Simulated assay, not measured.
Amino acid sequence: MVTQRELPVGRYGSREKRRGPRWVYWALLAAFVVAGLVVAYVAYVNLGDGPITTEPARYKIVDDKTVEFSFTVTRDDPGKDADCIVRTKSSDGDEAGVREVYVPAGGDQRTVDTVVHTSKQAVSVEVYGCSYQVPAYLRSS
């Protein structure tokens, strides 16, 4: 017959499983849920639609060094000026030209026309991005 040997309780403690207070479990669970919500909110703010969105309207390649481009700007705050960066690409994928475009305040949706001068013939044009942080040199022009 096999018997289980008892260890000295004073030396090794009892064999009963010790669990912490139940509130610690719930507090940790709540902390993880709050942390998850914070991460989701930050991702939504940084990866969601920005305050300024653009949509290309039309473009025309005038010659090997010039492109006319029109695009529509939609803002969440029509009372603020905006700065949009327009860039063109050549057939080999290189950036052929870049232009900053000043969009004055007024109207939540506005069509903007611009001319981009390029270093080589462009095959495409796009709005790289827009911001409410308009540099002083752009406002004065």
Rank of each mutant, 00 (worst) to 15 (best):
L47N: 13
V42C: 02
S131F: 05
V86Y: 07
V45D: 11
G107R: 06
N46W: 08
A82I: 04
S131Y: 04
V38H: 00
P51L: 11
V112W: 03
E126T: 12
V123W: 03
D64A: 13
S124I: 03
E95V: 15
V62I: 12
G48M: 06
G79L: 10
A105D: 08
S119A: 13
V112P: 03
R99K: 15
H117N: 14
Y132K: 04
R58S: 15
P78G: 04
Y132L: 05
R87Q: 14
G48K: 08
D83E: 13
E95H: 02
Y44A: 14
E55Q: 13
K80T: 07
I85K: 14
T74S: 12
V115H: 04
S70V: 07
D94Q: 14
Y137G: 09
A57V: 15
Q133N: 15
V123Y: 04
D77K: 11
G107M: 07
V73M: 05
I52E: 06
P135I: 01
N46T: 14
H117A: 12
Q121Y: 02
T66P: 07
L47F: 12
V42H: 01
A122V: 00
R75G: 00
A57D: 15
K120V: 03
G107H: 01
V39T: 12
D108S: 14
I61P: 06
D64P: 07
S90Y: 05
V115D: 01
T54Y: 08
T114C: 06
D94E: 13
R99L: 13
A35S: 11
A122R: 01
D63C: 04
S90G: 14
T111D: 10
E100D: 14
G36P: 07
F71D: 01
A40W: 11
P56G: 12
P51K: 09
R75K: 15
V62L: 08
P104K: 05
D64L: 01
K80E: 12
V86S: 05
N46S: 13
R110C: 01
S91D: 11
I61E: 08
G48F: 08
A136E: 15
D108I: 00
S70G: 08
T66C: 07
G48Y: 05
R87H: 11
D64Y: 07
V116W: 04
H117E: 14
V38A: 11
T72E: 12
V127L: 00
A105Y: 03
R110G: 03
I52K: 04
D77A: 10
T72A: 12
P56V: 06
T88Q: 03
G50H: 10
V38F: 09
Y102K: 02
E126V: 10
P135H: 05
C130I: 02
E68Q: 12
T66E: 12
T72K: 15
V134W: 05
V134M: 04
A40K: 08
E100Y: 09
K60L: 14
Y128E: 14
D81K: 08
I52P: 05
A136N: 12
T72Q: 13
D113W: 01
V112F: 02
V73C: 03
C84R: 07
D108Y: 11
V123T: 14
T53P: 03
